[in-house]
Simulated scan of single mutants.
Amino acid sequence: MAKKIGLFVAGAVALLVLLFHLGPLVGLAITLAVLYYAFKKWLKAPSTLGKVVWALIGCAALVASAWNVPALIALVAAYVLYVVYRKWNGVKDERIVPEADDPFVNFEKQWAELQKHY
Rank of each mutant, 00 (worst) to 15 (best):
A71S: 14
P70E: 11
W111G: 01
V105A: 12
Q110L: 01
A29E: 05
Y118I: 04
P98R: 01
V97I: 15
A60M: 07
A33P: 04
L22G: 04
F39K: 12
L43E: 15
A66S: 11
A38N: 14
V13I: 14
L18I: 04
A74Q: 06
I30G: 03
E99G: 02
G58R: 00
H117E: 10
A60S: 08
A77S: 08
L56R: 06
L75C: 07
A78H: 00
V80P: 00
A64R: 08
G58C: 09
N89P: 02
L15C: 03
A45N: 02
V76L: 11
V83L: 08
E113I: 03
L56E: 06
F8A: 11
A78L: 07
A14R: 01
I30H: 14
V84Q: 11
V76K: 09
V53C: 02
V97N: 02
L16S: 05
V91W: 14
F107D: 06
K44N: 09
W111N: 08
K109P: 02
F107Q: 14
I73P: 01
W42A: 15
V83H: 01
A77R: 00
A29P: 01
V53N: 10
L35F: 03
V63C: 10
K4C: 04
K87A: 12
P103E: 04
L56C: 13
M1Y: 14
R95M: 02
A12V: 04
E113Q: 14
G90I: 04
L22F: 07
A77I: 06
A2E: 13
E108S: 04
F104R: 08
Y36E: 13
G27Y: 05
Y37N: 07
L22V: 14
A78C: 08
L81I: 03
H21T: 13
V53K: 01
W54I: 06
L25G: 10
K4Q: 15
L25F: 15
A77Y: 05
Q115G: 06
L114V: 03
L18C: 05
A112F: 13
L18R: 10
G6M: 08
N106R: 15
G90C: 03
W42K: 15
W67G: 12
P24W: 00
P103V: 03
V52H: 11
V105K: 15
Q110G: 01
K51N: 01
I96P: 00
L114G: 06
V84A: 03
L56N: 06
I57W: 00
V26R: 13
V84S: 01
L15N: 04
A112E: 14
L16P: 00
K40E: 15
A77D: 03
A29N: 13
L75Y: 13
